[in-house]
Design a protein around this nucleic acid. Structure first.
Lengths: 247, 247
DNA sequence: GAAATACATGCGGGAACCCGCAAAATAAAT
DNA sequence: ATTTATTTTGCGGGTTCCCGCATGTATTTC
C-alpha cells in the first residue's frame, strides 16, 4: 500500500517520472500526480505518500513553497527535487527550509534516467540525502563565505530587486538608512561592481543599483520567480504591519 | 529526400517532437536533431532541411538568435517555434526578425499533441503562418499602442535593465540626457508606476528605476535571457565604437 | 583581558536621478 | 501649407543614491 506522488506541470516529464518510478525497485502500489504546488499539498494530505518527486518551477506555488508547507505537517517526508536549473535562488531556498528529520534529493533534469533512478532509490529506500554534483558548487558557495553572498546581502539584494528605496528597506528591516547603504556597498563589492572608467568625461557607466540586479539575474543568483515571491512576502508583511499600527 | 530539423535541448521533448513529426503526414525521409542554437545553424547549412521546429530557450544561442542567422541565409525557411512561455521578450524578438518571405508558427508547449501536429502541417505543407491564441494577445499589445510599450520604451527598459546610467544611455542612443529621462518617464507611466503614499513621512516607497525592472520582469516583458542578450549587444556595440574612435 | 574582526551608525558632500514647466524641433494629418 | 500630435531638449530644483571617513558596539580569537 505504498503511494508515491509526482508533482510536475509538464505532461511529458510527468510520464517520464512515472516510468522511472516503475523501473526502480520501489514497492509501489500507486502513483499520484499533481500539476502544481497547491494540488501537491492537497494530495499529500489525502494520500499520505511514502515520497515525493517534485519540479521546482511550477504555476501557483513554487516547489520550494510547496515543500515548506508539506514539511510543516510531515517533517520526515522524503522529497526529490527534479529541476532544470542550478539556480542559486532555488538551492538557497531549499537548504533553508529542509528540516533535520527529512531526507531529500536535488537532481538536475539533464541527468540520465539511470542516475535519476538510482537517486530515487537512495532517497526513498535508504533515507540518504543526495545532491547533484553541479549543484554542490552552488551550495558550497552559499554557505562558505567564499565569494557567496551572506544572508543579509541576499536579503537586501531581493529588496532592491523588488524596487524598494533605501528608506523603505530601512523601515522594513528595522535598521538605519545608513546601514542599508552599508549593506548595499557590501553587496556591490561582492558582485564585482568595480567601476571601469571606460566612459569619457568621467561619468559613471553603470547605475550600481540596477547593475547589481542585472548581474544577479545573469549569474542566476535570483530570477523572475524569486522576485515574485519576495514581492508577495513584502506586501503581506506590509499588511500585517498596518494592522498592528491600527491598535 | 526531405529532411526536417528539430532544435531542442531537452531530450524528452526532442523525442516527443520526433514522434509528432512521424505522426503528421509529412513526407519525411529523415529527422535531424540539434541541442542548441549554434548546432542548429550548422545543421541547416549541412542538411538544408525543409522545415525546422525549434525551442526558444536554449543554451549558447536563443531560438530567436538562431532563427535570425538561419533566415539570413534562407529567407524562406519555415520555422515552428515551440516554447514554454508567451513572454513578450520572445514574441517581440521574433516578429521583429521574421522576413516577409518566411512562414512561421509559434506554438506553446502546453498545447496538445494534436494541435501541434496540425500546426506543423499548416506551416510546413500549406505555407501558413500560425500563432497560438494565447500569444496573439501579447502580439497585439506590442503593436497596438494600447498599453503596450513602444519600441523606444522597450529599448530604454532594456538599457536600464542591464544597469546603464542615464548618461550612458544618452551616449549610446545619441540623444540628450534629458531625452533619456523623458523616455524613462513615459516608461514609468506605462508600467503603472503611480506612487502610493503608503509610507509615512512622505518618503518614496519605490525606486522608480529598480521598480520598473521588477514590474517588467514580473509581467514577463523581459526575462533573464533578454537581459543577457541585451548586455551582449551592448558590449559588442561598445567595442565597435571604440574602434571607430581610434581612426 | 587585549586585539581583531565584523557590523551598525552618523556626517557630509558630490553625483545621479526624478520630474514639472515650457519652448524648440520633427513627424503626421488634413 | 497649416494645423496637430509627438518627441526632443533645456532649466531648475528637490530627492535619492553612493560612498569615504570616523565612531561605537558586539562577537571572536588568542
Amino acid at each position: 500500500m505504498s503511494t508515491y506522488l509526482i508533482v510536475e506541470d509538464d505532461a511529458l516529464h510527468r510520464n517520464f517520472l512515472r516510468e522511472v518510478i516503475s523501473l526502480s525497485d520501489l514497492v509501489c502500489s500507486q502513483v499520484v500526480e499533481a500539476c502544481d504546488g497547491e494540488e501537491a499539498i492537497r494530495l499529500v494530505q489525502l494520500h499520505e505518500p511514502k515520497g515525493i518527486i517534485m519540479d521546482l518551477q511550477m504555476p501557483k506555488k513554487t516547489g520550494v513553497q510547496a515543500a515548506k508547507a508539506i514539511w510543516a505537517d510531515n517533517p520526515a517526508m522524503p522529497i526529490v527535487f527534479w529541476s532544470n536549473y542550478a539556480d542559486e535562488a532555488y538551492v538557497r531556498g531549499i537548504t533553508k527550509i529542509v528540516p533535520a528529520s527529512a531526507t531529500y534529493g536535488y537532481i538536475l533534469k539533464t541527468s540520465s534516467k539511470e542516475r535519476l533512478c538510482r537517486s530515487i532509490q537512495c532517497v526513498f529506500l535508504e533515507g540518504q540525502s543526495i545532491i547533484d554534483r553541479e549543484i554542490r558548487g552552488v551550495q558550497q558557495r552559499s554557505h562558505g563565505r567564499t565569494d557567496g553572498l551572506s544572508d543579509v546581502e541576499y536579503e537586501v539584494l531581493l529588496d532592491i530587486a523588488i524596487g524598494l528605496t533605501d528608506q523603505a528597506i530601512a523601515n522594513r528591516r528595522n535598521i538605519s538608512l545608513r546601514s542599508v547603504q552599508g549593506r548595499l556597498q557590501q553587496l556591490y563589492a561582492k558582485l564585482g561592481l568595480v567601476e571601469m572608467p571606460t566612459l569619457e568625461g568621467h561619468t559613471a557607466e553603470y547605475n550600481s543599483r540596477a547593475r547589481s540586479i542585472a548581474l544577479a539575474l545573469m549569474s542566476r543568483l535570483i530570477n523572475g520567480k524569486s522576485i515574485e515571491t519576495a514581492e508577495a512576502e513584502y506586501v503581506s508583511a506590509l499588511k500585517l504591519r498596518s494592522i498592528e499600527k491600527r491598535d
